[in-house]
Computed example of a mutant assay.
Amino acid sequence: MKKYKILSMLLALGFFVGACKTEMIEPIDLDALETGGYVRTVTPYPVGASTFNYSAADMAGTKMEFLAEAVTPNKGADFASYELVIKFVDATPANGTKTTAALPLKVLQASSFTKDATTGYPRATITVTGTEALTATKLTTSDIAVGDRFEITGTMKLTNGKSFSISNTGANITGGAFYSSPFFYRVNVIK
């Protein structure tokens, strides 16, 4: 009887081991996967709705500024440019309604970025002055008031023709704390 128990257990173990055996499935070809890129905001960190401000009283002397890093799988080698567009949102109708469409602001070529010694990715300080914002939106200081805002949207272009912006990038990249790549910068008009 003892032999039958041992034989039964060995037979069950054999079936169990045999049932777990699978065919080798073709592994994922990681080199064939689509890849992209993003422009990470290094400082200030994190970027929020109240991170950047323009002073309505001193538009000529105020600016929005951040340190940006172009991240691609090959350390930014296929990064071509970072294009910025700007939109003015008039939230104070007392001085008229001057909300604009998205208008071209500036294009930063990859050549204006410098490889960072620590990360190996290209970095640049991106600055948009109050005067640049007014010029791009064709507004004057009398058109803006405390409570209004400028919205700056970025698009990363790669040398292979692909482009990445807030509209085709996932929430993990645009809203995640690790990647810090909103592709969108809100500049509030304050006193």
Rank of each mutant, 00 (worst) to 15 (best):
L7D: 12
S8Q: 04
M9A: 14
A12R: 09
L13S: 14
F15N: 01
C20V: 08
K21D: 08
E23N: 08
M24C: 05
M24E: 12
E26G: 00
L30A: 03
L30C: 05
E34T: 06
Y38Q: 06
V39P: 01
F52M: 09
A57Y: 01
K63H: 06
M64P: 02
F66W: 14
F66P: 00
L67N: 07
V71H: 06
T72P: 04
P73N: 00
N74P: 15
K75V: 14
G76Y: 04
A77K: 15
D78S: 02
A80E: 14
S81Y: 04
Y82P: 00
E83W: 00
D90P: 03
A91L: 15
T92A: 13
G96Q: 03
A102N: 14
L103E: 10
L105R: 01
K115T: 15
D116F: 01
D116L: 06
P122H: 03
A124L: 06
A124S: 09
I126Y: 05
G130V: 11
T131P: 13
A136Y: 05
L139N: 10
T140Q: 09
L158H: 02
L158D: 04
T159H: 01
N160D: 14
K162G: 10
S167M: 04
A171N: 13
N172T: 07
I173A: 10
Y179L: 02
S180L: 03
F184E: 08
Y185V: 11
N188F: 02
V189Y: 03
K191N: 15
